[in-house]
Simulated assay, not measured.
Amino acid sequence: MEAHHERAEHQAGTSARGPRTDPATEAFVAHRNLLFTVAYEMLGSAADAEDVLQETWMRWAGVDLDAVRDHRAYLVRITTRQALSRLRTLRRRKESYVGPWLPEPLLTTPDVAEDVALADSVSTAMLLVLETLAPTERAVFVLRDVFDLGYDEIAEAVDKSPAAVRQIAHRARGHVAARRPRGTVSPTRTREAIAAFHGAVATGDLQGLLDVLAPDVVLLGDGGGVVQAVLAPVVGAAPVAALMTGLGKFGATAELTPAQVNGHPALILRVDGEVDTVMTVRVDDGLVTGLYAVRNPQKLSRVEQVTPLSR
């Protein structure tokens, strides 16, 4: 999709030598980050979100722009429909996935973290909650509660009546509320907890880990059957701490560094300079309650460069 993006800009005359001249490309490029964010929140996969944007562009390029009143709304509608179609395919793919499936981690900019609603919506914990929704419920929740679209706009995107969309939104909101993170934590307490966790992992400090891990902490690992990872959730401070101290086995070639991933503090483990594991962290009440370790190499390319997100 990035290559296509460059081609589209070139076709539009976007370069150091001149302005864009193609209105369709100009509108698409202007809303691209928003469209990617919509698709990613519906799918949890950046690769699939890029495919959705490719499909959106192909349909958008054939639209009579004179007949389109609101370019943003129309593009979101196309993206939502394509994402819904792909979401059903993706769900079938996940049924045969080896071990836990985790969202593809994205390296994000500080402005994403500053937008609390956006950061919450793309957090690993929230994306896992969204995985429990039916496809249309997920689309309606994302479009309404994250992007604040009107019920009429959402109805056109999901081919439902506005009244039905209201009911779906209410049901999805209740479902999410029952499963979402326990409550907001101050950024300072979150940073302190993650810094303590980072230090304890880096030094193999077992007691330090036990001090910062919640008694019911859960660790999920995603190797996709390609690399080794835990195949079932690991629950409890003692077993999780034991696994974390084992990271020292990578030796002197390993480097554990902090990063902003999906709008939140995270840790990236590199071995011989290559990304090995991206670990996002959930903090509640000053303790680490969730650890999400993505090791599947097919999901790690997006932490080498920043992915722009927007609402």
Results as ranks from 00 to 15, higher is better:
8 A>Y: 06
150 G>M: 07
59 R>L: 13
184 T>N: 15
97 Y>A: 07
287 L>M: 13
191 R>C: 14
74 Y>K: 13
196 A>T: 14
26 E>I: 12
230 V>E: 07
258 P>R: 03
3 A>H: 15
194 I>A: 13
48 D>M: 11
145 D>L: 04
304 E>T: 15
97 Y>H: 09
296 N>C: 11
109 T>L: 09
79 T>V: 10
117 A>Y: 13
278 V>Q: 02
284 D>W: 08
237 A>T: 05
108 T>Y: 00
246 G>F: 02
209 L>R: 00
299 K>D: 05
74 Y>S: 13
176 V>A: 07
221 G>Y: 00
28 F>I: 06
309 L>M: 08
25 T>I: 11
11 Q>E: 13
249 K>Y: 08
129 V>S: 03
126 M>F: 04
167 Q>S: 14
293 A>I: 04
104 E>L: 08
209 L>E: 01
194 I>Q: 09
179 R>T: 04
6 E>H: 15
28 F>S: 01
26 E>R: 15
25 T>H: 09
182 R>D: 15
129 V>L: 05
19 P>S: 04
161 S>T: 08
225 G>S: 10
206 L>I: 07
237 A>S: 13
285 D>P: 11
43 L>M: 06
111 D>C: 06
296 N>P: 10
257 T>R: 08
89 T>N: 15
219 L>R: 09
216 D>N: 08
251 G>T: 05
119 A>G: 12
139 A>H: 00
280 T>I: 05
134 A>S: 10
248 G>D: 00
100 P>M: 02
44 G>V: 01
101 W>M: 02
121 S>T: 02
116 V>C: 14
172 A>L: 05
61 A>S: 13
233 P>F: 10
304 E>K: 14
65 L>G: 11
62 G>Y: 07
110 P>N: 01
202 A>H: 04
249 K>N: 09
215 P>M: 06
310 S>M: 14
25 T>V: 12
175 H>P: 08
178 A>V: 03
71 H>E: 14
17 R>L: 15
185 V>A: 09
113 A>V: 07
303 V>G: 01
98 V>H: 10
220 L>E: 01
142 V>M: 03
204 G>C: 03
65 L>S: 12
25 T>N: 10
154 I>P: 01
269 L>Q: 05
29 V>H: 12
248 G>W: 00
99 G>F: 01
132 T>Q: 08
48 D>V: 13
103 P>L: 07
149 L>I: 12
87 L>P: 02
274 E>N: 10
150 G>T: 09
222 D>H: 00
222 D>F: 00
62 G>E: 12
308 P>W: 02
99 G>K: 00
116 V>D: 14
127 L>C: 05
224 G>W: 01
39 A>P: 08
191 R>W: 10
143 L>R: 00
174 G>Y: 04
53 L>H: 01
242 A>M: 11
185 V>F: 04
128 L>W: 00
177 A>T: 10
39 A>F: 06
185 V>M: 06
224 G>A: 06
